[in-house]
Amino acid sequence: MTKAARARMSLAARLVLALPYGWLILFFLAPFALVLKVSLSSSELGQPPYAPIFNSFDLADIRDKLGALSLDAYAGLVGDSLYLQSYVNSVLIAAAATMIALLVAYPLALAIARSEPNRRPLLLLLAIAPFWTSALVRVYAWIMILKDEGLINHALMGIGLIAEPLHIFATNWAVLIGIVYSYLPFMLLPLYAAIENQDRALAEAAADLGASPTGVFWRITFPLSLPGVLAGALMVFIPAVGEFVIPDLLGGSDTLMIGATLWNDFFANRDWPAASAAAVALLALLVGPLVLYERLQIKAGEEQR
């Protein structure tokens, strides 16, 4: 009876693990294996537009198909300067946006963390609330503001500050603004947590030992918040590299980012192997930052225990 009870409990416990794990294996890990597979097949006209490989587990068949493995898609990636350019561009824009987001978010995080303790939750909620509104709407708002005939130009020309409209829309600048605006909460949250968690006595001790407010900041507050800086930077950088909507809507025709290139390959050119190869290459690019991010997440999870 009691043994049975224990067995039942562990069955329930196993279910707790098996349900989400099974789901993730099926709909997350397996699809990624598939991306790798498709990226190695050759492009074909038809539905699906790629030559299938490894559909059976017949050994002889697999041997045959191994011979048919195609690196065409990857060769295309390397050979096509458009791809290379969009990779470099993605990394550069994402890195720049991450830097700007850090510079914008840090003072805000500091200001919230140094507010009255009972006001902090509300301020924090207000700061991340925009993240809950539609990303599309937020990007759209910036189109309205930045366009040549948009609100900024309208206002500046209205007060006579400029005669010609500023061309911000459809440039990399607009993409930068869009990314910083969209991902600011991702930067803000870890920064705030890292600053707020600090023992105030540390700053007081530093001041007591003669550090000026700037000295306290650079020698105590900032170094102690570095884990938060790293977490925030990764949380902005990783998705920004693969961003599609922002460069597509705010960028110009010369704004090449890998997410948008992948999208076009898939939807416009219907070259699935090329799109898959681009996805694999994008993942390869992000593998370092991703592993670092997972480590941080898991470590933070452990520390909370």
């Binding site: 397996a30 991703l290 997440q297």
Partner: peptide, 20 residues
């Protein structure tokens, strides 16, 4: 696998699921 979708570029995830 739990935490990755939080930051993974959505184009990659979307493509992967579609192929699946």
């Amino acid at each position: 696998a739990i935490y990755a979708p939080l930051v993974l570029p959505e184009v990659v995830m979307g493509l992967a699921l579609l192929l699946f």
